[in-house]
Simulated assay, not measured.
Amino acid sequence: MFIVSLTYKVPLDQIDAHLAEHVEWLKAGYASGVFIVSGRKIPRDGGIIMAGGDRDRLQETLKGDPFHRHDLADYVITEFEPSMTANGFERMAGI
């Protein structure tokens, strides 16, 4: 499992100009089963994506993000192995 942390490199008006396309890209990531949850950071200086699958597939998916294609954000991928979950999230830990 992965946590992807995006940090914007440009002002929010440039982010907002590509936001609709970014949302469509996110929807495709959910439809393909790569993304699990996503959202904006607070304060709004980037975002977080939780993803499953393997690193190669995730990295290939991230290349399609308009924020990546237009060099608007930096990405940090952290891989981890869930070992405990709250009730209702057992599937995420492979339990």
Rank of each mutant, 00 (worst) to 15 (best):
1 M>Q: 08
2 F>K: 04
3 I>W: 03
5 S>K: 09
5 S>Y: 01
6 L>G: 07
8 Y>F: 12
8 Y>N: 00
9 K>P: 01
9 K>D: 12
11 P>S: 08
12 L>Y: 13
14 Q>C: 06
15 I>F: 12
16 D>Y: 05
16 D>F: 04
17 A>R: 06
17 A>P: 00
18 H>E: 15
19 L>C: 12
20 A>S: 11
21 E>K: 07
22 H>W: 00
23 V>H: 07
24 E>A: 13
25 W>L: 02
25 W>G: 06
26 L>Y: 04
28 A>I: 11
29 G>F: 09
30 Y>G: 06
30 Y>N: 09
30 Y>F: 15
31 A>L: 06
32 S>R: 14
32 S>P: 09
33 G>P: 12
33 G>D: 05
35 F>V: 05
35 F>R: 02
35 F>Q: 01
36 I>P: 10
37 V>E: 08
39 G>S: 04
40 R>S: 12
43 P>E: 07
45 D>E: 14
47 G>I: 05
48 I>W: 09
49 I>G: 11
51 A>W: 09
51 A>Q: 02
51 A>M: 03
51 A>S: 04
52 G>A: 12
52 G>S: 09
52 G>Y: 08
53 G>H: 08
54 D>R: 08
55 R>Q: 12
57 R>Y: 05
59 Q>G: 09
60 E>A: 15
60 E>S: 11
61 T>Y: 06
63 K>A: 04
63 K>D: 00
64 G>Q: 15
66 P>A: 11
66 P>R: 08
67 F>L: 13
68 H>Y: 14
68 H>I: 14
70 H>D: 03
70 H>T: 01
72 L>A: 03
74 D>N: 09
75 Y>W: 09
75 Y>K: 06
76 V>A: 03
76 V>W: 03
77 I>P: 04
80 F>L: 12
81 E>S: 05
82 P>C: 06
83 S>T: 14
83 S>W: 09
83 S>M: 12
83 S>R: 13
84 M>K: 14
87 N>A: 15
87 N>F: 14
88 G>A: 05
88 G>C: 02
88 G>H: 03
90 E>D: 12
90 E>S: 10
91 R>L: 10
92 M>F: 14
92 M>G: 15
92 M>P: 00
93 A>G: 04
93 A>K: 05
94 G>H: 01
95 I>W: 01
95 I>R: 14
